[in-house]
Computed example of a mutant assay.
Amino acid sequence: MKYTLQQLRVFSAIVRTESITKAAEELFLTQPGVSIQLKNFQDQFDIPLTEVIGRKLHITDFGREIGELAAQILLQVEEIDHRTSAYRGHLYGRLKIAVASTGKYVMPYFLSAFIKNNPAVELKMDVTNRATVINSLENNQADFGLVSILPDRPKVEEELLIENRLFLVGNAAASLEFKEKGEALLEQLPMIFREEGSATRQTMEQFLERNDITLKKRLELTSNEAVKQAVIAGLGYSVMPLIGIRNEIMDGDLKIIPLRQFPIRSSWRLIWLKGKRFSFLSSAYLDFIRLHKAEIIEEHFSWIDEYEGET
């Protein structure tokens, strides 16, 4: 056997993505280049690693076993690089983090100083929906995830970062008298929801269920930015995380509607698979978060306490 580390990287990516095209995109290689690497790797085995059925690539059972071993070998090689760099006095490698969409307003502040202080560290931050964050952890495509609601599965461990406050918001022209009315007023409003699977959507629905509120009208949009623009345009009202609408509130495009029981509170949390064996880099980043979390919150998020809502 004379397979190379590059062949292992390519085959591991093919097994993970079940696609030559996606593996090529992930590795920044051409599709013909990935196909050649796969052929050269396959030539060293007399048992098929892959098969094509109906123009779709499938990984054989044997191929999946080899893929798992390849992934383990690559992790060990990466750990050698990390430890060598650590002895030279700096960290090295790629830190992979999957972030639930609204978390894009949070996560960069918990990364900037770490990346700045460790210039040899490469960052891959995938901003996506909550379901994909969980899948990325399960498939070992991310070292950490950022979510505001813990998943039922898989089992994860967490490090709390900052509180997530959600308010009912309308556009600048909203003129209803809200203070004298309770949460049942929501039944009269055209409400805008995030898509199924969104943590904001889940938090909003749990609130409605606890308060026995049924909405008669609603729109559904697939991103926080789309919801924000729809509210600004006057299409309706929504429950939104404060962290993502600060500028619009300060500019007067959106305003918080004061109602009892608002804000709805949850927490942004860094999560990872329970029992995960950290690389040297991942362990160093978690240590950094635990050591500097309080000062990051004080420097970048103390403004949140200005918005308490109605009591």
Rank of each mutant, 00 (worst) to 15 (best):
K274F: 09
I304V: 15
S35A: 15
M191L: 01
E68M: 00
I97G: 04
A120I: 08
D251S: 02
E187R: 04
S266L: 03
I97E: 09
P263Y: 04
E18I: 03
E195Y: 01
S12K: 03
F207W: 09
D43L: 06
F262E: 08
A174N: 10
G236M: 09
Y87K: 14
L291N: 14
F144Q: 01
G182H: 04
V227H: 07
K96G: 01
T17D: 05
I115E: 08
R9S: 11
F178S: 12
I14W: 02
L146E: 00
L235P: 06
A173N: 14
A71V: 05
I296S: 00
L49R: 01
L5T: 14
L189M: 15
E159S: 04
R218F: 05
K56H: 11
A120E: 15
D81T: 12
S85V: 06
K56C: 02
E299Q: 15
Q188R: 11
L219R: 12
I257E: 06
I134N: 01
L29K: 12
L160F: 02
A173I: 12
N171G: 15
P154W: 00
W272N: 04
Q141A: 12
G63D: 08
V34W: 00
Q76L: 14
L291Y: 11
T21C: 03
H292G: 01
A24R: 05
E306G: 10
A233R: 11
T50N: 02
G309P: 09
L270G: 02
G309D: 09
S101W: 07
A230W: 02
N135W: 11
E68H: 01
E205H: 09
S112R: 10
P108S: 00
I73W: 03
I47R: 13
I36C: 01
P48N: 05
G182N: 13
H300P: 06
L95D: 07
E248A: 06
I271V: 15
T60S: 06
A113Q: 14
L57Y: 04
A184Q: 15
Y92A: 01
W303G: 00
A172P: 08
I47S: 12
A233D: 15
V77H: 10
T222Q: 10
P190K: 03
